[in-house]
Design a protein around this nucleic acid. Structure first.
Length: 392
DNA sequence: AATATGTTCAACCGCATTTCA
DNA sequence: CTGAAATGCGGTTGAACATAT
């Protein structure tokens, strides 16, 4: 079934790299870049497979790698993004400059996961392990609610990734047409980091826009319900990107309309729609002054992503999906609890964390504020990411 | 000092996805 | 359009090192 390992070829070395091998690889890539990993080893005089070379380069030799201890900020980012994205290490890594997905994965498995478990939190779901005991007061519903939101967000991120990829492709092809316009599209994670290539102007993070849209929608929903979130559950949710959306933007933007993103929960009696309609100017310009009108506006196919069947918040479905926001915030509380415990770890004052469980969600008196803070914290960390982060 | 046990992390493996001829 | 090759990604392994007994 599966492909045979590329290193099966006789004579190819495996295992730890020697300084000499590192030097060879570095020297070769510095001079030639890496066009084809498969062809690289022989050209560089290495008895390794291309895959091994690529791994060594991306995880260790790349000059833009930061090594050493993770900062508190980085830990917080990992925990929050893991709660949102799960084990999607590469996606998480895009928000942690100079850290590799492998490093983040290792750090999670050896440090953060254990810390969570120690705090009584399931590191997979980010829910308290005694969730069942809390079900009577709505904790499990809220946890499912946040999980549901994470799935939602995750699906959206993936959809955006496709948009961005397509956009970049088109942008790239336009470059060829424009010839020496002096503008190079930003590199992505999938594009090889060819050396000596002029740095491209950073593109704003689109994922941030989505989070903002979600945040706005969420908060507006709260406003209309006195701090109660309604109808978050969407057993059949659709995500629609429409290139044919009417040009809602004025002020000379002309056809540079933003994609209209709709999140429609079809199960609820009150349709919940979050739209992002040119909320922000996201029109990177070429150096010659022409706007990059290709981004998100060109002939993208109307795309409807049905996520039917992916929502598992059965409890919400049966409960009418009216969930106190404060319960959701318990998640943030646990994350903060963990981080506090982490601080304890760092200050060598072990053992004080467990007793704080009861305070995880604070007094729960201001659900609205807590919820806002949760999303703000995620937005902040996304905001703080480099704008040219090759997340997609 | 010797041995057992635990921890860390670079590297490997294999599947999934994307690219290309 | 199709299939093979290339690449990306996440899970897992195992050697090296640290700590406990």
């Amino acid at each position: 079934m599966g492909r045979s390992p590329c290193c099966d070829k006789v004579g190819l070395k495996k295992g730890p790299w020697t300084p000499e091998e590192d030097q060879k690889l570095l020297a070769y890539i510095e001079e030639h870049g890496h066009g084809s990993w498969r062809a690289l080893p022989s050209k560089a005089g290495l008895q390794r497979c291309g895959k091994s070379c690529r791994l060594r380069w991306t995880n260790y030799l790349r000059p833009d790698i930061k090594r050493g201890k993770f900062s508190l900020q980085e830990e917080q980012t990992i925990i929050q993004l893991h709660a949102l994205l799960g084990n999607r290490w590469s996606a998480i890594a895009t928000h942690l400059p100079k850290r590799t997905d492998n490093e983040i994965k290792n750090y999670w498995n050896t440090h953060l996961k254990k810390r969570l478990a120690k705090m009584g939190i399931d590191p997979v779901t980010h829910k308290p392990k005694n969730d069942a005991l809390l079900s009577s007061d709505g904790q499990s519903k809220s946890a499912a609610n946040l999980s549901h939101m994470a799935q939602w967000e995750s699906a959206r991120l993936e959809a955006e990734a496709r948009l961005v990829r397509e956009s970049k492709l088109r942008s790239h092809s336009l470059q060829h047409q424009l010839g020496n316009s002096g503008f190079a599209s930003s590199s992505s994670a999938s594009s090889p980091p060819v050396l000596n290539k002029p740095e491209a102007p950073p593109l704003p993070s689109r994922s941030l826009d989505v989070l903002k849209a979600l945040n706005v929608g969420w908060l507006r929903s709260n406003e209309g319900n006195g701090g109660i979130v309604t109808d978050l559950e969407s057993p059949t949710s659709t995500l629609t990107f429409s290139e044919n959306a009417p040009p809602l933007l004025t002020g000379g933007l002309g056809e540079n309309t933003m994609p209209m993103i709709e999140f429609v929960g079809t199960s609820g009696s009150s349709e919940r729609v979050v739209k992002e309609e040119g909320e922000q100017e996201y029109l990177p310009e070429y150096k010659d002054g022409t706007e990059n009108s290709l981004s998100f506006t060109s002939s993208l196919h109307d795309m409807t992503i049905s996520m039917e069947g992916t929502w598992t918040s059965e409890s919400l479905r049966t409960s009418g999906a009216h969930v106190p926001v404060g319960d959701v915030i318990a998640e943030e509380g646990f994350t903060n609890l963990l981080l506090n415990a982490n601080s304890d770890d760092r200050s060598l004052s072990e053992g004080g964390g467990e007793s704080n469980n009861g305070e995880a969600s604070g007094n729960g008196s201001d659900f609205y504020e807590d919820n806002k803070n949760y999303w703000n914290s995620i937005l902040n960390l996304v905001n703080s990411s480099p704008s040219d982060s090759p997340i997609f």
